[in-house]
Amino acid sequence: MEVRTIKVFTTVDNINLHTQVVDMSMTYGQQFGPTYLDGADVTKIKPHNSHEGKTFYVLPNDDTLRVEAFEYYHTTDPSFLGRYMSALNHTKKWKYPQVNGLTSIKWADNNCYLATALLTLQQIELKFNPPALQDAYYRARAGEAANFCALILAYCNKTVGELGDVRETMSYLFQHANLDSCKRVLNVVCKTCGQQQTTLKGVEAVMYMGTLSYEQFKKGVQIPCTCGKQATKYLVQQESPFVMMSAPPAQYELKHGTFTCASEYTGNYQCGHYKHITSKETLYCIDGALLTKSSEYKGPITDVFYKENSYTTTIK
């Protein structure tokens, strides 16, 4: 009895394709271990004539594949690729409408935090270190965002349907971005203890939790000093293409032309909904596939993004 075979390709990165001759009487799992086709788990399936010449994702289970996976995804987590594939199996079914010149995501599976993050990423200057993220990001900007969303979920250790947080998501993504040249110098002034300067680099240099107003941050924000008295913390120097200011959701007025974009969060910790506000020729609110415009805006804002380049204080 002759062994019926077909020729397929296996890959971990969709760049390096490895030619395989597979036995049609055995499952993919018996031949390769966990195997995925377009995100779908085909591990328990036997090869079919229609699979001839198709590319299958496999887990990096030998040295060659491990090197290829690390170079593309910059992670050695053995569960990463499987999590990416199972997320992709959902995100490829989502709709990605162009809204006001940006790629958004039609609401499904509690994905409003991903839509808000995706919209924000198209408006701030950011370059990702893992080629996987950078490639998928370019495709997302062009309207094909399924891979990018699935990668975000995998890097953030999230599953489809789980509630997510924009600030946490951005923080994970910033860790995989090139923020080497970003720098922030802060000064804390206390009447009792004097003053202390701190220099922050990388992710810490672009994120701040405690106030939404970048102007206020430049002037000074009140913080408790270690001595128990009130101290003032203010920005001395900022070198970065953008800054992200966050605070627990509270009524906040966004003035046209003073910011790049913002995240609105309605609801409580267990259950809520994100919308995205962007400042173009007027203010726009993007909620999944829905767009509304207004000249002014007041609502429960939790993150505001500002364009920056270089700032030095005039406070002496």
Rank of each mutant, 00 (worst) to 15 (best):
E2G: 12
T5Y: 13
T5K: 14
T5W: 10
K7W: 11
F9H: 15
T11L: 05
V12T: 07
D13C: 06
D13V: 05
N14W: 08
I15W: 08
N16V: 04
L17D: 07
H18C: 08
H18S: 06
Q20S: 13
Q20F: 07
V21P: 11
S25Q: 13
S25C: 08
S25V: 10
M26Y: 14
T27K: 10
Y28M: 06
G29I: 03
Q30M: 10
F32I: 12
T35D: 03
T35N: 02
T35G: 05
T35M: 15
Y36C: 06
Y36V: 06
L37Y: 12
L37M: 13
G39W: 07
A40M: 15
A40C: 11
D41T: 12
V42G: 04
I45N: 11
I45T: 13
I45G: 13
I45Y: 11
K46G: 10
K46M: 09
P47D: 02
P47G: 08
N49D: 15
H51S: 06
H51M: 09
H51Q: 11
H51L: 05
E52S: 12
F56I: 09
F56V: 09
Y57A: 08
V58R: 08
L59V: 15
P60N: 06
P60Y: 06
N61K: 11
D62L: 08
T64W: 08
T64D: 12
L65C: 07
V67R: 13
E68N: 07
A69R: 06
F70H: 08
E71K: 11
E71W: 06
E71P: 03
E71G: 06
E71D: 15
Y72G: 07
Y72E: 07
T75D: 07
T75F: 04
D77S: 10
D77G: 05
P78E: 15
F80M: 04
G82F: 13
Y84N: 04
M85V: 07
S86K: 13
S86N: 13
A87F: 05
A87W: 04
A87G: 06
N89C: 11
N89V: 12
T91R: 02
K93N: 15
K93T: 13
K95M: 12
Y96V: 02
P97N: 06
P97S: 07
Q98P: 06
V99Q: 08
G101M: 01
T103M: 05
I105A: 07
K106I: 09
A108R: 14
D109M: 04
N110D: 04
N111Q: 02
N111S: 04
C112I: 04
Y113I: 02
A115M: 07
A115W: 01
A115Y: 02
T116G: 06
T116R: 03
T116I: 03
A117W: 01
A117P: 04
L118T: 05
L119N: 02
T120Y: 04
T120I: 13
L121S: 07
E125V: 04
E125Y: 06
L126G: 02
P131S: 04
P131Y: 05
P131R: 07
P131M: 04
A132I: 01
Q134I: 11
D135Y: 09
D135I: 08
D135N: 12
A136C: 06
Y137M: 15
R139L: 11
R139Q: 12
A142S: 13
G143I: 03
E144M: 08
E144V: 07
A145C: 10
A146C: 08
F148G: 02
F148K: 04
C149Q: 03
I152H: 03
I152M: 11
L153M: 11
L153G: 03
L153S: 02
L153P: 03
A154F: 01
N157R: 11
K158V: 02
G161E: 03
L163W: 08
V166I: 06
R167P: 02
E168V: 08
E168I: 07
E168F: 06
T169V: 11
M170N: 03
L173Q: 04
L173T: 01
Q175L: 09
A177P: 01
N178V: 06
D180A: 13
C182R: 04
K183I: 09
V185T: 10
V185A: 01
V185N: 02
V185Q: 05
L186C: 08
L186E: 15
N187G: 11
V188N: 05
V189D: 14
V189F: 08
K191F: 07
C193I: 05
G194V: 02
Q196H: 12
Q197D: 06
Q197F: 09
Q197A: 07
T199Y: 08
T199S: 10
L200D: 11
V203T: 09
V203Q: 08
A205I: 00
V206M: 03
M207H: 06
Y208S: 11
M209E: 09
G210D: 01
L212R: 03
Y214W: 09
K218I: 06
G220S: 05
G220Y: 00
Q222E: 12
P224M: 13
P224W: 09
C225A: 00
C225Q: 02
C225S: 01
C227P: 01
G228A: 03
K229F: 08
K233Y: 06
Y234V: 09
L235R: 02
L235M: 03
V236F: 07
Q237F: 11
Q238D: 02
S240Q: 03
F242P: 01
V243F: 03
V243L: 10
M244W: 04
M244H: 04
A247C: 09
A250E: 12
A250M: 08
Q251P: 13
Q251F: 15
L254A: 02
K255P: 07
K255A: 10
H256G: 11
G257Q: 06
T258V: 06
F259K: 05
C261S: 02
E264Q: 08
Y265H: 00
T266G: 09
G267I: 05
N268S: 13
N268T: 11
Q270M: 07
Q270N: 15
Q270V: 10
C271R: 12
G272W: 00
G272V: 00
H273E: 01
Y274F: 11
K275D: 02
K275V: 14
K275S: 09
I277Q: 07
T278P: 00
S279Q: 05
E281Y: 01
T282G: 14
T282H: 12
Y284M: 11
C285T: 15
I286R: 05
D287K: 01
G288M: 00
G288A: 04
G288K: 04
A289V: 14
L290Y: 15
L291N: 13
K293C: 15
S294L: 15
Y297A: 00
K298G: 08
P300M: 14
P300T: 11
I301A: 00
I301E: 03
D303Y: 02
V304R: 00
V304S: 01
F305P: 01
Y306A: 01
E308A: 07
T312H: 14
T313E: 12
T314L: 15
K316E: 15
